[in-house]
Each structure stands twice: as structure tokens, then as C-alpha cells.
Amino acid sequence: MTFHFTPCPSVRTAPARSAWRLSAVVGAAVVGLAAANAAHADAGAFPNKPVRMVVGFAAGGGADVVARLVGAKMSESMGQQVVVENRPGATGTIAADSVARSPADGYSLFLGSQSTMVIAPNIYPKLPFDPLKSFTPVSQLVSMPLLLVVNPAKVSAKTVEELTKQIKANPNAMSYASSGAGGPQHIAGELYKHLLRADVTHVPYSGESGAIADVLGGHIPYMFANLPVAMPHIQAGKLRALAITSLQRNPTAPDIPTMVEAGMKDFEVLTWYGVFAPAKTPAPVVQKLYTEMQQALAKPDLKAKLADQGLTTVASNPADFSRFVQNEVPKWSTLIKEFGIKAE
């Protein structure tokens, strides 16, 4: 008689399962340790090639000025060049999308502002990226006010009050320029229009350089321009500044009154610029980039250059910058809804 003996499954397979689980745990630990070591190794060697900083606006604008000044100092300390790449259009979202899709290794950065990271989601229904999820905030660099400027050869107004009277007398003949639909310059223009209760045409450009060129050429009566871009033209007598959009006067231009002083209640619009890396960029690489930016902004000569142009240095760390961006969202979305601002 032949007996067929089948072992109990629990007796035969339990040790195998335990061994498999142990191997899996050990394997996962080894992979995790290897990944952590690789990240630290990458951060230690970072950067070993040029770093690309993409700007979503044309060369010569406020964003471009900041990127080139800070990038030059970072190049000196890192031993690798920070290459500024201008990709204007759609309130900076074209440039932002290109960086969001780049490898998360720290070599592709985006110089963002509230125009792209906070305002754009409210005016473009289907962005190809999520400003809060597609990026890792590195550091806010600077903040700056805007200047309400006119062409003195075309507009006789020397104060906000005088410009207001001229607009009300000829509302359909007046227009203002901006660097693009939905940006701080557009918001400032709509806020001014709202307070003076007059219909003025908004003329958006694909960057500040084009907008200010047409104001200089007398084609557009006025605009709200970034302070560092407008000041050289003001000093040359080609533009006249009527007011500044901060709540306090700026040390760079102490004679220019604030919009509040000019009778525009609670009028405050500030522009800020900061650096973002693609989401999931290793924390050590982000920290390295932040440290380089912090050191660059602390350099006396750079700090003086920025201050001379009316820029306030911030140099916030990644965590603080992330909180700042999240807090900006409700403030700007409220203004956009109130004024009915849409992409043009």
C-alpha cells in the first residue's frame, strides 16, 4: 500500500513567507538607504554643470533684472554659471510649465512671481501644471512697488488728481499698458480704474519692455511699471512718476508720493519674485540653492544695487516661502473676482 503524504501548507509555507517578508524589508531598506545616499551625493556634487533659471517675461523687465543680478552672484560663488533664459508669454505660464516638466535635479529653476504662481490659476481655467503641487519653493528673493508713470510729452498731468480729472473728462480716449493680463500691473490698473469710476481700456503686452516702450513712444498714456524698470526713464526725463503703490514712500524715490497720499484709499500693490524648482527636487539640493541665494543677497554690492532700484531683499527659507505663497492665494483671488479680470 502506498501512502501519499501532503504536508500542511502552514508548516511548509510559513517559513518561506517569513523569509520573503524579511528579504522585502531588507531590500526596501537597502533601496531607501541607497536613494538617500544618492541624494546626499548629488547635493554634495551639486552643481557640476550650468544651472538654468527660466524667466517668464521678456528681457529688460523687472523679473529679468532680478534674475540676472542674483544669478551673476550665484555663478561667482558656485563656480558654475547661472544661465538666464527668457520665455515670455501667458503671464509666465509657458516658462513655468517648461520647468515643471524638467528633471527634478536642481539644474532647471523658475523665477516666479504672483503673476504666475498665484494670479494665473484664477484667470486660466486649465493650466498644464499646478502652481502649488508642481514646484518646490526655494526662496523669495525680493519685493518691490510699482510706479504710476505717464509720458510727459503726451500727458500734462503732474499728480494723480490731475490724471484722474483728465481720464474722467476723456474716458474712452484713455488707455493703460501692462506686462500682461492678470499681472500686478493689470491689477493695479484695474484697482485705479475702479476707484476713479471711469472706463479705461487695458492694453496687455507680452512683457514689460514692450509696454513701457509704447508709453515712452506716446502710444499709450500711462501704466503701472516696476520701479527698477521705470526709474532710469524717470531720471532721464522721459517718464513722469505720479505715485508709488506701496503704503510708504520708497527710499530710492522719496519725493514720489504713495497712491494713498494721492487720495486712493487702501491702494497697495507689490510685486515679488522668488525661485522655484520642480516638485520632488531633493531636499539637500533645494537647501544648497537656498544657501547660495541667501549668500548672494547678503553681498553688500548686490544689496546696494537692489536697494538703489527700490527693491527690498527677502531671502526667505523654503518653508517660509511656501507658506507665503499659500497665503497670497486668497488675497489675489479676491481682487480678480471683484474686478472680473480674465485672460486676454
Rank of each mutant, 00 (worst) to 15 (best):
P103E: 07
Q81E: 15
R323L: 03
A45C: 08
F224N: 05
N172G: 13
P152C: 08
F321D: 09
S134W: 10
L239I: 06
P121I: 00
S134P: 00
E208Y: 10
V286P: 03
V160D: 04
S77F: 01
V65D: 07
T116M: 01
S98I: 03
S156W: 06
T159W: 01
A253S: 13
P318R: 07
N151S: 02
A90M: 05
H202V: 07
W332V: 06
V26A: 14
I123D: 05
E208G: 05
I234M: 12
L111E: 06
P257A: 02
P282R: 14
K126W: 00
F110R: 12
K165S: 12
L227R: 12
A14Q: 14
P204E: 01
P125D: 12
L148W: 08
V142W: 12
I167Y: 08
F46T: 09
D130G: 04
D97N: 15
I256N: 08
Y192G: 00
I220M: 02
G182T: 02
G217W: 05
L148T: 06
V70N: 04
G263R: 07
A96M: 00
R12A: 13
Q294W: 11
G182A: 03
P232H: 15
H40S: 10
G310D: 08
S179E: 07
S246Q: 10
Y124I: 08
V314T: 10
K158A: 08
A173F: 06
G71K: 07
N317V: 05
T245E: 02
A319C: 01
K280R: 14
A307I: 09
V155D: 00
S139K: 09
L227K: 14
V99W: 03
Q309V: 01
V149F: 10
V200F: 03
T201L: 00
M144V: 07
V325E: 06
M117Q: 11
P88T: 02
V142N: 11
M231T: 09
N37D: 12
K133T: 10
E162D: 03
G183S: 10
V286R: 11
K158T: 15
A90S: 14
L289Y: 04
T6R: 11
P171I: 00
G61M: 03
M174E: 06
L191R: 12
N172A: 09
S178V: 06
M74V: 04
A95W: 03
K238Y: 08
A319D: 11
K168L: 01
T281S: 01
N226K: 14
F276K: 05
L132Q: 14
P330H: 09
A213P: 01
F3K: 15
R87W: 08
P171G: 00
E261G: 02
T6F: 13
